[in-house]
């Protein structure tokens, strides 16, 4: 199959690789760059397990052709890791609030949370529900996830 050079910036680093053009962005991130926080859940855009940030917007990478990543800035959960392996505040909040059970949905949720938090806006609980509505979780029942995001948002805004 035809291969194509794809250059992009992943987690702050300029990278390039020759790809099978049939790859999804999930395939590229997992197989070529070993970014295994990007999960394969449904692979049809329903569950959000494969969610990453591309040029500041959230996308399900399972329904995104890898060749479309050319020239884009992509962020995955791995970018949140501190220099000594520390967790970021939002990851710690997921731990503290028991918002993780099996963990399969967690990286996707957290990348949407990153977008929410970086907007610098304060959202109501209802608005947060809407913003997080592109993710399925089979374990937690969502309440603890909402708590984790809401608390981190308030902390960052100096309101908690």
């Amino acid at each position: 199959m035809e291969k194509k050079l794809v250059r992009c910036n992943i987690n702050g680093k300029d990278v390039e690789t020759y790809l099978d053009v049939r790859s999804s962005l999930t395939d590229m991130l997992r197989n070529d760059y070993r970014l295994t926080s990007v999960k394969k859940g449904c692979e049809v855009g329903e569950c959000g397990a494969c969610n990453v940030i591309i040029d500041g917007e959230c996308y399900n990478s399972c329904i995104y052709l890898a060749v479309w990543a050319e020239g884009k800035h992509i962020r995955t959960l791995e970018s949140l890791l501190g220099p000594n392996g520390e967790l970021s505040d939002i990851q710690q909040a997921f731990v503290d609030e028991a918002a993780v059970q099996c963990g399969f949905c967690t990286p996707g949720f957290i990348m949407t949370a990153v977008k929410i938090l970086e907007s610098g806006k304060e959202y109501t609980r209802e608005e947060l529900r809407k913003q997080l509505s592109g993710h399925l979780c089979r374990c937690t029942g969502y309440e603890n996830i909402l708590n984790a995001v809401e608390k981190t948002m308030k902390k960052r805004l100096g309101k908690a």
Partner: peptide, 9 residues
């Protein structure tokens, strides 16, 4: 439509 990620694409 859909959810936030779908609305990006």
């Amino acid at each position: 439509a859909g959810g936030p990620q779908l609305r990006s694409i």
